[in-house]
């Protein structure tokens, strides 16, 4: 009603008349164009290209490097028959579940809840320490932890010795535990930050009222905090599961997938096939499967998010 009542403002551009409203729509599109172009060129096109390549026998070298041929579903048939592919997929799920859900999510939430009530100094110290892990570059983090896990003189084994235990071969006998620990250490800050800001948004009155009603700390958490931040919980799940699923550098530098493939998550598997063995087509097929898994997860999460938003 209001818009119709207002006098129509007209602007002339290039000898043509535009309404103000139309012009602002157009300028919006114009401003978005560079970003959209970048997404198109660097995200969309490579993705489509990877899918196309996954149906070819392209390799990085040899006669198939430039004159590759379409081989139908051959790469996928080979992939599904490859035991180390299933091994890497299984390890990836363990890695995501343990380091993203059990580790980063629970620890991050716990830290956010505890720090909300903590003294300002403690808040700064603990929050800062957690954040520090996050801002350290991946490779630096790996070398820091490699020295912690070092068999002879690493901090972890020195502690074990101090408490009267034997040295433990961290990277040989428990490589998955090692990479999960490092990833939790690194990733917890992100979840903590996300929840800290969500918790800030909960009015104190709710907790005060619950306190008057005699609610316990757990009850306050269960019936006030969790319902109020459930949207953030879902958002965090999306971001950390996908982020963890595509981890590569950390594991590659730490264990290179070893020993004997016992920590070879899907990212390392793809690298080994596409670059070490130079079979880009086959490696792309594995990436496409990874993409599909991520896509399914994304759809499920987005569905849940929409249900949450609808409430």
């Amino acid at each position: 009603m209001q818009a119709a009542a207002a006098p129509k403002q007209v602007v002339r551009v290039f000898g043509r008349e535009f309404s103000r409203r139309r012009l602002s729509e157009l300028s919006l599109l114009l401003f978005m164009l560079p970003a959209m172009l970048l997404v198109l060129v660097f995200v969309f096109v490579p993705t489509i290209w990877a899918i196309v390549i996954s149906f070819t026998n392209q390799s990085l070298i040899g006669p198939n490097a430039r004159n590759f041929q379409f081989v139908g579903f051959d790469n996928y048939v080979r992939l599904f028959a490859d035991n180390s592919f299933w091994n890497s997929l299984g390890l990836s799920f363990v890695f995501v579940f343990a380091s993203a859900f059990l580790g980063q999510f629970i620890l991050g939430l716990l830290l956010a809840v505890v720090l909300r009530r903590a003294h300002i100094t403690a808040k700064g110290l603990i929050g800062g320490a957690v954040l520090l892990a996050w801002v350290v570059p991946e490779i630096v983090a790996v070398y820091v932890w490699a020295s912690v896990f070092n068999f002879q003189s690493g901090t972890a084994n020195q502690l074990l010795l101090a408490f009267g235990f034997e040295r433990h071969r961290w990277l040989i006998d428990t490589p998955m535990l090692a990479i999960i620990l490092v990833n939790v250490w690194r990733g917890t800050a992100f979840t903590m930050l996300l929840f800290s800001s969500a918790l800030e948004a909960i009015p104190d009155e709710l907790f005060d009222a619950a306190a008057v009603d005699g609610a316990s700390a757990w009850q306050k958490f269960r019936f006030i905090t969790v319902p109020m931040i459930r949207y953030t919980i879902l958002l965090d799940f999306i971001l950390i599961t996908m982020g963890t699923f595509s981890v590569f550098g950390l594991v590659f530098a730490m264990t290179a997938g070893g020993p004997l493939g016992r920590s070879e998550i899907i990212g390392v598997y793809i690298y080994r096939n596409a670059f070490q063995y130079r079979e880009v087509g086959f490696g792309s097929a594995a990436s496409v499967i990874m993409l599909l898994i991520n896509l399914v997860l994304a759809v499920v999460y987005l569905r849940l998010l929409r249900i949450e938003q609808g409430k």
Binding site: V142, Y143, A146, F149, N150, F151, Q152, R169, L171, I172, A253, M254, T255, G258, P259
Partner: peptide, 10 residues
């Protein structure tokens, strides 16, 4: 030779 260092980065 010690086995463990061969399984550590670098």
């Amino acid at each position: 030779a010690a086995a463990e260092p061969f399984m550590e980065p670098e």
